[in-house]
Computed example of a mutant assay.
Amino acid sequence: MTTQEAFKKRVRERMQKTGERYGAARRALIEAARARDAAASAADGATTASPARVWVAQPQHSDELVREKTGRGWDAWVDAIDAGPGRAAGHPAIAAWLVAQGVDDWWAQGVTVGYERITGLRLPGQMPDGTFTVSRSRIVAMAPEEARAMIHDDDARAALLPGFETVLRSRPGVRSPGFELRRDGELLGRVTFAFDPAPGGRTTLTVAHAKLPTLEEGDHWKAFWAEWLAALEEAGTTD
């Protein structure tokens, strides 16, 4: 079980015990972890990583890689940022502080995002505005031009997404067309499609769904788009 999965399990266990909603239970556990970290850092003088630290979510890069590229591993960076700008500083201020410590711009952004994930300030798929983005990909048995034409055609797209309304929100000719997704007038986020060539004249079709309000919504739509792509691929192979 990954660290993130273990944390989700703890959240759900707390929900069962307290009757709290997911968000409230998650916040309570994060605050408890922060309190333990603060106590451990105070005892250490913030010179070493806290052995009691709970990683709320996994960073996008391994500890070995971030240590190689920046000179410190994740726990050391968490301690350093906590003792420097702090968790309330915000993403731009933390990234700027890292650059001032000698980290290049690209890795300053990567370390900031990793720090936000570890400490629960940002979960995987969460954007700076607090919303979530998820994506799913699958190889389908059609050429990229055919897949693109199908998605751009209003009738074909409606048949592929019965019960939903889609409104094109991207400029004509862009590589990845984007649509507002609605159901019964309710806005459900923005969906973008990408079409990359795959062996055998096929297409790697990627669906990215942005502007989702919660992590749970992201999990729901990841499952939805995985099933949708599987059905599309199956239809293409049986035609």
Rank of each mutant, 00 (worst) to 15 (best):
residue 169 R to C: 11
residue 182 R to G: 02
residue 203 T to M: 09
residue 170 S to D: 02
residue 190 R to K: 06
residue 189 G to S: 03
residue 185 G to Y: 00
residue 189 G to I: 02
residue 196 D to Y: 10
residue 193 F to E: 02
residue 178 G to P: 04
residue 171 R to E: 01
residue 176 S to K: 14
residue 172 P to T: 09
residue 195 F to G: 02
residue 201 G to I: 07
residue 189 G to A: 02
residue 188 L to W: 10
residue 173 G to N: 08
residue 174 V to A: 13
residue 193 F to Q: 02
residue 185 G to D: 00
residue 174 V to Y: 12
residue 188 L to S: 04
residue 184 D to V: 01
residue 198 A to E: 05
residue 178 G to T: 06
residue 186 E to C: 07
residue 182 R to K: 12
residue 186 E to N: 09
residue 202 R to Q: 13
residue 179 F to K: 03
residue 201 G to N: 11
residue 176 S to Y: 07
residue 180 E to K: 14
residue 179 F to H: 08
residue 168 L to V: 11
residue 177 P to Q: 05
residue 182 R to N: 03
residue 169 R to Y: 07
residue 194 A to D: 11
residue 174 V to G: 11
residue 186 E to Y: 09
residue 190 R to H: 09
residue 171 R to L: 06
residue 177 P to I: 09
residue 203 T to F: 08
residue 187 L to M: 13
residue 175 R to V: 13
residue 184 D to M: 04
residue 187 L to R: 14
residue 182 R to Q: 07
residue 199 P to R: 14
residue 195 F to S: 06
residue 172 P to A: 09
residue 192 T to D: 03
residue 199 P to E: 15
residue 192 T to H: 02
residue 170 S to K: 05
residue 174 V to P: 04
residue 180 E to L: 14
residue 171 R to Q: 02
residue 169 R to K: 10
residue 171 R to S: 00
residue 197 P to E: 13
residue 203 T to R: 09
residue 176 S to N: 15
residue 178 G to Y: 05
residue 174 V to L: 12
residue 194 A to R: 13
residue 188 L to D: 06
residue 183 R to H: 13
residue 196 D to M: 10
residue 189 G to D: 02
residue 196 D to E: 11
residue 188 L to Q: 12
residue 191 V to W: 02
residue 181 L to T: 06
residue 170 S to V: 06
residue 180 E to S: 14
residue 189 G to W: 02
residue 173 G to F: 15
residue 179 F to T: 04
residue 195 F to A: 08
residue 169 R to T: 03
residue 181 L to Q: 03
residue 200 G to C: 08
residue 191 V to D: 01
residue 174 V to C: 12
residue 183 R to T: 12
residue 186 E to R: 13
residue 181 L to E: 03
residue 200 G to K: 15
residue 177 P to K: 05
residue 192 T to W: 00
residue 172 P to W: 15
residue 193 F to Y: 10
residue 197 P to C: 09
residue 185 G to S: 00
residue 172 P to N: 05
residue 185 G to L: 01
